[in-house]
């Protein structure tokens, strides 16, 4: 005989509790990873822009644009960085990494802007662009474009991995909880069967001895049922093994 109803709420409660924990943890995880990684990529872009700006001073003053181009070509190999361009103080494009040409959106933008700005360039994608002034802006500005699609993909991957891990914990936790509840319900089921047997005045199953020998509440209840049954005038229940009943 199985205990079907007694732990239904318990199982539901456990499932609900784990669900809420997973949802809350996932939401927090998504927010934290998204915020921190986005900030990290943005900071990296700003650092790269600043590095290029710092390194560009002498090169620009020497008008050595080939070396300048060589330098930004190396920086643009960094993952997530999609383009770099350097404008003069007059807005002239001194070096860039665009192929086949400088996009209209870039040409139309403020060349001296150093604040982060989001750009959507047809055919290229969505970008977060950061800038850094060269010699406080009097020698020009370095602009670094971070590929938001690529960054979003990386963030999604990071979040996905964490959510998958949390879901695994949820499934394992729920299964473990159900197993533990079932473990607790098993002696109750045996007790119920024992009580039904007593009530029906049938021979107890062989597990009766184990039941009556338990030193927990289930054992106490079994012995109580036995005692009540023995007190009953039309009791026909057989004696348990003397050594095990207490």
């Amino acid at each position: 005989m199985k205990i079907q109803k007694l732990f239904q709420r318990t199982r539901f409660g456990i499932f609900l509790l784990f669900g809420v924990i997973v949802l809350c943890t996932s939401a927090l995880c998504i927010y934290t990873v998204d915020t921190q990684l986005t900030a990290e990529y943005e900071t990296n872009s700003q650092n790269i822009a600043k590095s290029v700006a710092d390194a560009s001073v002498d090169i620009l003053l020497n008008r050595n644009l080939a070396t300048l181009q060589s330098m930004i070509d190396q920086f643009v190999e960094i993952q997530g960085i999609r383009y770099i361009y350097i404008t003069s103080e007059n807005g002239e494009y001194l070096a860039h990494t665009f192929v086949p040409g400088i996009p209209e959106q870039i040409l139309a933008s403020d060349h001296a802007n150093t604040e982060p700005v989001e750009r959507s360039i047809p055919g290229l994608g969505d970008f977060l662009e950061v800038g850094s002034p060269i010699l406080a802006g009097v020698a020009g500005t370095v602009h670094v474009g971070m590929d938001q699609d690529e960054v979003a993909l990386k963030i999604q991957r990071a979040i996905g991995q964490q959510v998958i891990l949390i879901c695994i914990f949820l499934v394992v936790g729920v299964l473990a909880s159900i197993w533990l509840v079932n473990l607790a319900a098993k002696p109750l089921a045996e007790l119920l069967a024992y009580a039904v047997n007593i009530a029906d005045k049938r021979e107890p199953e062989t597990t009766a001895d184990d039941l009556l020998g338990r030193d927990d509440e289930v054992g106490d209840l079994a012995r109580l049922f036995r005692h009540i049954s023995d007190q009953s005038p039309d009791s026909g229940a057989p004696e348990a093994s003397p050594g095990k009943a207490r």
Binding site: A66, T67, Q69, D73, A95, F98, V99
Partner: peptide
């Protein structure tokens, strides 16, 4: 060419 040669 989008590199140092082209820029030169």
């Amino acid at each position: 060419q989008a590199d140092a040669y082209g820029r030169s």
